[in-house]
Structure formats: C-alpha cells, structure tokens
Design a protein around this nucleic acid. Structure first.
Length: 549
DNA sequence: GTAGGGTTAG
C-alpha cells in the first residue's frame, strides 16, 4: 500500500507510467477511498491522459466530488492535448458556475486552444475574462496571450499585451520576439532583441530561434549572419533548436553552403536538423544532394519520420525519375507511415510528376482520410496529365465532403483548364474563387486566367482584365499576355505589352527576344534588326540546347 | 506560459 502511495505522491507519476500500472493505481485509490481526494484524482487523470485514455480520465474527473483547480486544469489540458477543443472549452465555461474559478494555468491552456483552432473572437472573449479575473499582468497568462495573438497574425494585439507589462520576464520577451518573427516583421523582432539586451536581459535559445525564424529571404543574409555570430558568442549554437533554426534560416537565404557548415559543426545532429538540411537542398532545387543526405541519414541508422519522408518525396518528385520515389514509398510502407496524410499527399504528387498518374490515383483512393492537400495534389496531377474533367470532378467531390478549397486548389484547377483549353469553365472557376469562397487572387491566378483567355483567342478580354488590375501589375501577368499575343499573331497588342514590360524591366532580355520573334514572324526584319541592335553580343549569344539522346 | 524540420502552389 505504501508503495502505491509513494508512486502517486512522488515525481515518478509525473512521467510516463503504462496503462496497466495506471489502472492498478486507479483501482487502489478507489478501494481505499482516496479517489475522493482531488490530489490523487488529478494524478490518475494525468496518467490516463498520457496513455490517451480520455474516457477513463473523464470518468475519474466526474466521480471526484471535491474538484480542485488542479483537477480541472488536468482534464482541460487532457482534452486540449487530444485536440478535443469543444470539450476543453465547455469545461472551461462550466467552471464559472462552480466554486472553483479558473487560475492563470487554466487561462493559458484555453488561450492556446483558441489559437490552435483559429478562434479569434473566442480568444478575445477569453482575454476579456483574463482581465476581469485580475490576471491582466500575470506573466503566464500574458505570454500565452502574446503567442496566441501572434499565431493568429494579430501582432498588434500581441504588442498591446506586451506593452502593458512593466517588467517583462524572459518568456515574455521570447514570446513577443518570436511573434514578430512569425508574422514576418523580422526588423521589429530585432529591435526588441536589442532593447531587451540594453535593459540587461540575457537572450536564450528561444530568443535567437525567434529572431532567426524571421529571416526568410536572401536579401537578409547579412542580418542572419549577425544572428549566427551572436549564437556562437553566447555558445547557443550547440542547442538543437538553435542549430536547426540556423540551418533553415540559411536555406531560406539560398545559402546552402553555410547551412551545411552549421550542420557539420554539430557532433550529433538530431532528426529535425537533418530534416532542415535535406529540406533546404530539396527546396533550393538541389534534389540530388537532398537524396544523397537522406541516404546518409539512413546509413547512420536514424529513422526518418513522416515529416522527413514527405519532404524527401518532394525532392524525389523533382528528379522526375520514379526509382528514388518508389524506394522511399517502400520504406514508408515498411515503417507503416505511408498512410500518414502528409506522406500520401506527397506520394500522389511524386507519382504524377514522375509520369505515373495511375499510381498516384491508387494512393489517393486508398487514403483513409483525405485532406485538402491530398485533393490539391490529385487535381494538380490530373491537370498536368490533361484530365481537366477528372480534376473538376475531384473538385466537386472535395466540396461534397465539406473541405474548404484554398489558393492552391484554384491554381491547380485553372492550370488544368489552361492545359485543356476550357476557357468558359476556367472563367467560371475564377469567378467562384472570389465570389463563393472569398479567396483573394494572387499573381499566379491572374497568369492562368490571362493564358486561358489569351490562348482561346479572347485577347481583348485578357488585355482588359490586366488593365483593370491594381498597379503595379506583376510582370509575370504581362509576360503571359505577351506570349498569347505571340501565339495569336496579334502584333499590335504585342507591341503595346512589350513596351509596358520593357519600361518596367529594361534589362530583361527575354521580353526583347519575344518581341523580336513576333516581328520576325511577320517578316518585319527592319524592326528585328533595330531591336537586336539594342542587345549586346553577349546577350544575344544564347547557348543552344544540347541533348545526350 | 515561449522555440527548431512540413506534403500541394508561387
């Protein structure tokens, strides 16, 4: 008996205990009437939660007459961890009718729940309750609020919470700095980083990960190097989170060599850092290196997980060669992660890009739960293979099962219509995208619709559409129009469009070459010569294509 | 109460 009590009271029960042992302890406290004590009930609830037995946990909670705030927090956290947000929220609201009011830990858990479920309005409501309960300056509630608001892209609200704190602690600083980085305001994050240091704060791993994750484009490379320097100076670079954040930061800056140097400086990089490197190579187009490092990782006896498999399949898809993809598929099957939604979606994409759409369709059909990414992948695949009507059928199917299409869905559909020359269907899809689904058009959507109109001879409509767009119109859109003019032989419009393009991109040769080709097609050799004279010898001398075959 | 790698698209 004292043995059971010892386990329940000690630190041991905070860590993992098997389901069997948990049931044993549960039986013990029931038999000895200790189950009425909220202290023991809380322990059992936590243990059931760790063992993913929510129903048992709830049963213990329901049977406990005197519920402490710890017990409430444990059951709410259990629901939150299991993504049962409705249950977590309803229990939270039930608390207000009881004698036990939520404490700062209850609030922080609910705040997180709201953010994970994109409940902006509910988050504000909970924030109101935080203030009313006197937790407006509580560091635990406030850091959770800052993170939640940032994750919902409400950085101004996050800032307001931070600004009222008279003496923000380290977690608070980290939350707001990561928030700015996450929302793309890397410069604001850096400013706060220096402010923190000027006030005598000591940045830790969380802080530098926060600033590094905001560095997302090659023009920020020197800033990124500065952050790396700081990590070296403070010996933070051996922290696994920091190291992988640095590897991805350099990858985003197109600086794979620096990413590689950070990687090899580690004695024992973990799976996430390996993934960061491999994904970096894959996304920068160096799929052979990605595949090479994937092989190396396997030879070192590390076990890739679903995220890494999905990532490496994207590299395999680029190779346009079925072999690596098939091998990885085999691996995923053996590991039992082929049914993971992310993995399946990238398998569909890999097969269709490597020319085996039928295999992609097979993967799609055997998927248990299909999300929007899986549908997008199959729609892209069908479109690429010229099966526009099949792509449209899949679109209707995803709507039927209640999925919400996104930007990529519409790019895929418009691309499918383009390939098949389905101009009126494409136009209808383009309209539905905004009117029915409220999705904003992006450059690629304009490019597709212009191509669709232009290639089906509706050049005038395409031109008017481009003119109606808010300035500045991306040169990709004008470029699409120019190539349609070329295809339709509309010299008049081609000149106008090319002029527009050359005004904005005087140094881009491709547009001059296109215009020159149009002149040549019409036999206007004088104009060709004039245009060609504006190019230097080097610019004209394009290397002809070579083939081994 | 805060952190790293993410499949489809550009």
């Amino acid at each position: 008996m004292s043995f059971y009590l010892h386990i329940l009271a000690s630190e041991l029960s905070k860590t993992y205990l098997t389901l069997l042992r948990t049931k044993e302890l549960h039986a013990f406290i029931t038999k000895t009437h200790l189950a009425c004590d909220p202290f023991y009930a809380t322990r059992i609830v936590r243990l059931y939660s760790i063992n993913s037995r929510l129903n048992y946990a709830r049963h213990v909670f329901d049977k406990t007459p005197n519920r402490s705030v710890y017990l409430w927090n444990s059951i709410i956290r259990a629901y939150a961890k299991a993504h049962k947000f409705g249950n977590a929220l309803s229990l939270f609201f039930t608390m207000f009718g009881t004698e036990t009011l939520p404490d700062n830990f209850t609030y922080s858990c609910i705040i997180r729940v709201c953010a994970e479920n994109f409940h902006r309005e509910r988050l504000k409501l909970v924030h109101g309750r935080v203030l009313a309960s006197g937790f407006g300056l509580d560091p635990i509630c406030c850091s959770a609020l800052v993170t939640a608001y940032s994750n919902l892209d409400l950085i101004e609200d996050a800032s307001k919470v931070f600004d009222v704190m008279p003496h923000p602690d380290l977690v608070m600083w980290n939350s707001i700095i990561s928030g700015f980085g996450y929302c793309g305001f890397w410069n604001q994050g850096l400013l706060l980083f220096s402010r923190m240091r000027n006030l005598g704060g000591h940045p830790d791993g969380y802080t530098v990960v926060g600033v590094a994750s905001g560095i997302a484009e090659p023009s920020l490379l020197s800033t990124g190097k500065g952050i790396h320097g700081f990590c070296l100076k403070c010996s933070l670079d051996s922290n696994e989170h920091v190291a992988s954040a640095l590897v991805s930061m350099y990858s985003r800056c197109n600086c794979m060599y620096s990413a590689y140097l950070v990687f090899i400086s580690l004695i024992q990089p973990d799976l996430v850092t390996w993934s960061a490197l491999i994904t970096g190579y894959s996304q920068s187009g160096d799929f052979w290196k990605a595949l090479f490092f994937f092989q190396k990782l396997n030879m070192q006896g590390m076990k890739p997980d679903a995220i890494l498999i999905a990532s490496i399949l994207a590299a395999a898809a680029q190779s346009a060669n079925i072999r690596p993809g098939i091998e990885i598929h085999g691996y995923a099957l053996r590991q039992g992660i082929d049914s993971n939604e992310m993995v399946s979606s990238s398998l569909i994409d890999m097969y269709s890009k490597c020319g085996y759409l039928s295999l992609g369709i097979r993967v799609f059909h055997i998927m248990q739960r299909k999300g929007i990414v899986a549908y997008n992948s199959i729609i892209w695949g069908m479109g690429l293979h010229g099966l526009a009507s099949k792509a449209l059928e899949s679109f209707e199917e995803l709507l039927d099962i209640g999925l919400m299409p996104n930007e990529s869905t519409f790019s895929a559909l418009l691309c499918a219509c383009c390939h098949a020359g389905l101009s009126s269907v494409g136009k209808a899809i383009f309209r539905r995208m905004r009117n029915e689904f409220g999705i904003k058009y992006r450059t690629e959507h304009y490019v597709y619709i212009v191509k669709l109109l232009g290639m089906s001879g509706e050049l005038e409509e395409a031109y008017n559409l481009v003119l109606s767009l808010p300035e500045p119109v991306d040169s990709g859109v004008w470029g699409a129009l120019l190539s349609c003019c070329d295809a339709c032989g509309n010299l008049e419009l081609a000149e106008i469009v090319a002029q527009k393009l050359l005004e904005n991109n005087p140094h881009k040769m491709a547009y001059r070459v296109m215009l020159s080709n149009i002149y040549a097609g019409e036999g206007r050799w004088d104009d060709v010569k004039k245009l060609r004279d504006t190019m230097t010898e080097k610019e004209r001398g394009k290397l002809p294509g070579l083939s081994w075959i």
